[in-house]
């Protein structure tokens, strides 16, 4: 499912909304989540999961083309942990 398919599903679900509204809603939710996470604020969605940032210490890397050593600075990377309900729904067939 892509973003536009998600927008289509939400429009179908809320026929009273103008198509534009579902599009703007999806954009607003995703922008809000991205902004929050990039500012170091964690996200917790009950029944879905949580997003936070994981620390990556600085490390010695290599330029794969030239082979030259480069120092990769410390950074934070986004991390998602599925909530219980999502975990169980996804694992439904194999459980």
């Amino acid at each position: 499912m892509t973003k536009s398919e998600l927008i289509a599903k939400l429009t179908e679900r809320y026929p009273q909304l103008v198509g534009k509204d579902a599009e703007l809603a999806v954009k607003t939710i995703l922008d809000g989540m991205a902004r929050s996470l990039s500012q170091g604020q964690r996200i917790e969605i009950r029944g879905f999961g949580s997003f936070d940032l994981n620390y990556r210490p600085p490390r010695q890397g290599r330029n794969p083309k030239s082979g030259a050593k480069v120092l990769v600075p410390e950074k934070y990377v986004p991390h998602f942990k599925a909530g219980k309900e999502l975990r169980e729904m996804v694992d439904g067939e194999t459980a």
């Binding site: 499912m1 892509t2 973003k3 679900r13 995703l30 029944g47 879905f48 996804v90």
Partner: peptide, 27 residues
């Protein structure tokens, strides 16, 4: 409130059906 609920609900439903979810610009 309903829209936020539906947003995550649709993503969950898609994943539960075994379908990957691609939200460009987010992940």
């Amino acid at each position: 409130k309903d829209m936020v609920e539906a947003f995550f609900d649709e993503i969950r439903a898609s994943l539960a059906e075994g379908d990957t979810v691609k939200l460009s610009g987010f992940g």
